[in-house]
Every structure is written in C-alpha cells, then in structure tokens.
Simulated scan of single mutants.
Amino acid sequence: MTTEKRREREVEEMKELILSAASDIIASEGFDKLSIRKIAKKIEYSPSIIYHYFDDKEEILNVVIQRGYKKIVSAVSSMKIEGSVPEEKLVQMTQNYIKVALSMPEEFMAAQLNQSKVALKHTSSLFKGASKEKPALSALYQCLKEMYKDKDVDENTIELTAQMIVVSTLGLIFKIIIEKDISDEQRDNLISFYSNEIVLRMANGNRLN
C-alpha cells in the first residue's frame, strides 16, 4: 500500500470514528446536545483535531442525518419489491420504512423532532412539491400514481395522500418507540394491520371517487 493510500484510509477511519461518536451522542442526548467538545472527549482527542476532518458541527450533523435518511430511502425503494402490484408494493414500502426507523429509534426520533435547519433540510416533507424533492416521498408518490393510473386523480391529491400516509406512519413509529413495553408480537401485529388495512384504505379512497 502506498503512503498516499494509507493516508487516505487513515483519514476515512478517523472520519468514521468522529461520525460514530456523534451518532452515539445524538442517540443518547439529542441533536441539540451535540458539540465538538463532547465528540472529542468521547474519542479521546483534542477538539482541534476534529476540525482537520470537518469544518464544523453542522457539517457533522449533516452527514449523520444524510446517512440515516439514505437508510430510509433504501428501505422504501428496495429492489426486493420491484415488480409487485402497486398495492403489495405500498404495503411492503410502509413496512420497510417502519422497520428501518425502529432499528435506529433514538437517532430517528432525534432527527424527526429536531427543528434546526440542518435537520429540517432532510426531514421536512409537508411542503407543496415535496414529492419531487424528497426521494422517499417520491417513491411513495410514484407507487400511488401507479395505483391511480385508471382514475382521474390529480397530482396534488396524490401528493397530499402520500404526505398523509407519511404523517400517520410517523405517528405509529413514535408510539411504538415511546411505549417500550410492547411485545414483539404486538408490534408486528400493529405494523401488519396498519400497512395492510389503514394505509391501503387511505390510498384506495381516491380510487372510489
């Protein structure tokens, strides 16, 4: 391995160490409590070292949130559900979204409840036109559009439907995270009933008009 390659690897390893520490702090204390000093203390380096790898705390936050968001996007646009009929795809997308969120509960809650510009850049989804800018919402929008292909449903209605599904799904995720004593069986029952009954009813309402 050349000196240059070794240096590149060392830089990436240090960045990962910093980001991992930041994620841990966010998960346990929330976004607002994250600081360069806390990260430095956790990785046992001086704060000045961190500035060799990141410009500031905001850049670190941005990378951490981007990574979490990519997991969500990957879940709702998984190749495993390609080719399914729209209804099956919608159910699978919803379940994938919930399961990924529940796999990182503290990080997910911290991001969704944070009102900073950095967080909202990634988590906001209720503004008009969001389905064209947000990959996860766009995947849901396209699935609904496929469901309505034989009906005269306008784009605004499709986007609003997608946004309402996202909002209600967030509500279920939050409650499951907060009510920590829910059994695995009950959690699975809630997710199954919600995705197969509630979400499909919300989506199918526009096809009955």
Rank of each mutant, 00 (worst) to 15 (best):
V73Y: 05
S195Y: 09
L126D: 08
E179S: 05
A162I: 14
T161V: 14
E10F: 12
V166D: 00
D184S: 14
L34Q: 03
A27Q: 12
H52W: 14
S20N: 09
K15M: 04
Q142P: 01
T157H: 13
E107H: 08
F54C: 06
V167T: 13
L17K: 15
T161C: 13
F127R: 15
V11E: 06
Q115C: 06
I191V: 06
N196D: 08
K70M: 14
V199Q: 07
A130L: 04
S48Q: 03
I165D: 07
E197I: 02
A162N: 04
R201M: 13
A119H: 01
A139S: 15
D154Q: 12
V63E: 15
Y97K: 08
K151F: 13
S125I: 06
T123F: 11
F193W: 14
S192G: 00
L102H: 14
I177K: 10
L113W: 09
K180W: 10
S125A: 09
V153S: 01
I60P: 01
S131T: 05
S28H: 15
K117S: 11
S103Y: 02
Q112S: 12
I198H: 12
E59N: 05
Q92D: 06
E197R: 11
Y51Q: 14
E13Y: 01
D24C: 06
H52E: 04
E29P: 00
G68F: 01
F54M: 00
I165L: 14
N62R: 08
A136V: 02
E185V: 09
L126G: 03
S124L: 10
S192P: 01
R37I: 05
E155L: 15
V100F: 06
M147W: 10
A27Y: 10
A21I: 05
E59L: 02
L190S: 00
I178K: 15
K121S: 10
A130E: 08
S46R: 15
A40M: 04
I176D: 07
T157N: 09
S46Q: 09
D181V: 13
K57H: 04
F54P: 08
Q112G: 03
M93R: 05
I39V: 13
D152Q: 11
A110M: 12
I39Y: 10
Y69I: 12
L120I: 10
K99A: 00
H122C: 01
E87V: 07
A101G: 02
E4Y: 14
I60G: 07
L172W: 13
L17C: 02
V76M: 11
A22Q: 13
T2G: 05
E87L: 02
S195I: 00
R7I: 14
A27F: 11
F31N: 04
G83Y: 12
E58V: 02
N204C: 04
T161H: 04
V153N: 00
Q112F: 08
Q163I: 09
I36R: 02
Q186S: 12
S46V: 08
L172V: 12
V199W: 01
L137A: 12
N62H: 07
I26T: 01
R187P: 05
E107M: 05
T123E: 06
